[in-house]
Design a protein around this nucleic acid. Structure first.
Lengths: 132, 132
DNA sequence: CGGTATCCAAAAGGATACTG
DNA sequence: CAGTATCCTTTTGGATACCG
């Protein structure tokens, strides 16, 4: 199996992208990444996810969860009680995806100092050029 | 090392996010993912990348490459010739990052049928509900 | 509580023209 | 060729109000 950016497959109308890229974008979306990582710890309620992630609007969290549920990564368990209680958890497929995403997140956290240092070098080099 | 979405660290003005999330977003950005995957195969010129990725504007490719270069993931080699020739390649840091990203991409490609099937189930279930 | 609907601001992204 | 600059459209995302 080759992983290549050129594995495209635009539809006839040219308005969307191949499923592969689309799913990849769901998994790597701003809030999708964080939801998957958070749910690795176990089942969480809507409000728990909201607090855990922080700075995510209800709208975006709802939207993200619906997309991930439709793709089969997240299971939604809505209890028919008042007040409502809805628990979200990873499916087996979602757990696999979350492992990959968490791997990337973990690596990033681990290497963050290297990135910060690289930026300083980059900015310094450009500042010197500008004053010449 | 804990990987958690709650590892936030907003600045005092509340206008940006912690470096960790920011770098993660660079790596998981729409075009960033594809550039990293494409450069795993080796050094490529600007126009080669553009063709390989497809449907990316010059502006976005330029922007993406600059961000990845500043973060220390991509090396830019501009030959001082006419016409200009600029080659992009992964740094060692970038190679590590690209491995993680490629792992996710590979998994997605591998499981794409599961996702498509999950969507059909989801859409069917909702269609039935709507007609009740 | 866990959403949905609507509106609006901000950011991403594309098209085009131009340059060294 | 590999950009930069500008303009414009589309998408994203937040705030608010409301509902079961």
């Amino acid at each position: 199996m080759s992983v290549s950016a050129s594995n495209v497959n635009w539809n006839t109308a040219g308005e969307a992208m191949c499923p592969y890229r689309l799913v990849l974008e769901h998994l790597t979306s701003r809030w999708g990444v964080l939801v998957l990582i958070e749910l690795r710890e176990g089942s969480k309620r809507f409000s728990e996810l909201r607090r855990a992630i922080g700075r995510v609007s209800e709208k975006m969290l709802t939207q993200t969860l619906q997309i991930l549920e439709r793709d089969g990564f997240v299971h939604r368990d809505a209890k028919p009680i008042i007040p409502p209680r809805v628990d979200y958890s990873l499916t087996e497929l979602g757990r696999e995806a979350a492992e990959q995403v968490a791997g990337l997140a973990k690596w990033t956290e681990h290497r963050i100092q290297n990135v910060i240092h690289a930026r300083e070098q980059y900015d310094k080099a450009r500042a010197e050029k500008a004053s010449s």
